[in-house]
């Protein structure tokens, strides 16, 4: 057998052939006993090698340990790094501390936003302070309390209706949370808080076991969108929010 055939035997055994190639190869094997024997030999050798190594059928404990080791620090550290990048990009003078000084903004916003989401999204009786029925009042009240005009994005085109909103404390100031839900009652919250440092950032992501979070800065607002959807859907929603705000 030439070297080309040896490679083809391997491709056959390893499932690398297309359907047509397999059929042609099997026809050849019928005519060429040496080829069929070579296939059998490789399969046997592989089987011996596989049998020489143990299997671990339950990997979930290893995965759980890895997740536990990663959980407390991952999203926040990444987001802090992301916000440092934003600061660099816009020369906002926050560079002095570099990586030794944690950048609290994106970090703190996502922590507050996800905590607020987890607290209120499950609430049946009082998910919001002011319901969507009083949209104008909600807008006026929150604008007043946050000291800057708040706009409430309309996400009905994305299948999300406004449930309402509430005022929340954030660091030394305040933040607003708007809650939306889809037809199945799945809730997404938009968290926003004003900032003195105007800038625009791209979308940055974080996640927990069950939630995907998107953070960005648009002008004098920091936004965080939190929900149980995957990254693609959350990106789409974040872009809709951005579109509705500008």
């Amino acid at each position: 057998m030439n070297e080309g055939d040896t490679v083809q035997v391997g491709r056959y055994v390893d499932g690398e052939m297309t359907r047509d190639e397999v059929m042609a190869f099997e026809r050849r094997m019928e005519d060429e006993p040496a080829l069929a024997a070579a296939v059998e030999e490789v399969m046997r050798g592989d089987a011996v090698l596989r049998s020489a190594l143990p299997e671990l059928s339950d990997v979930s404990q290893i995965l759980e340990r890895a997740e536990a080791a990663v959980r407390p620090s991952v999203p926040w550290r990444q987001l802090a790094a992301a916000v440092v990048l934003v600061a660099v990009g816009f020369g906002s003078g926050l560079m002095t501390g570099r990586s030794t000084t944690p950048m609290p903004m994106g970090d703190a916003i996502l922590q507050s936003a996800s905590a607020a989401h987890e607290l209120y999204a499950v609430e049946v009786v009082h998910p919001v302070e002011v319901t969507a029925g009083e949209r104008d009042h909600l807008k006026g009240w929150l604008s007043n309390r946050l000291g800057s005009e708040v706009r409430i994005p309309d996400l009905t085109a994305k299948g999300l209706s406004l449930v309402g909103g509430r005022l929340l404390p954030f660091e030394q100031g305040a933040a607003a949370q708007f809650m939306y839900e889809d037809g199945q009652g799945t809730r997404v919250t938009l968290y926003l808080t004003p900032t003195a440092d105007e800038a625009n950032s791209s979308l940055r992501y974080g996640d927990t076991e069950t939630l995907t979070m998107v953070h960005w800065q648009g002008g004098s607002w920091h936004y965080a969108l939190v929900g149980p959807y995957g990254k693609d859907r959350m990106t789409e929603l974040a872009q809709s929010v951005q579109g509705a705000l500008f």
Binding site: S51, P54, E55, L56, D58, Q61
Partner: peptide, 8 residues
């Protein structure tokens, strides 16, 4: 304790 030794 965790290892699945049954197969081998």
């Amino acid at each position: 304790e965790d290892a699945d030794l049954s197969a081998h």
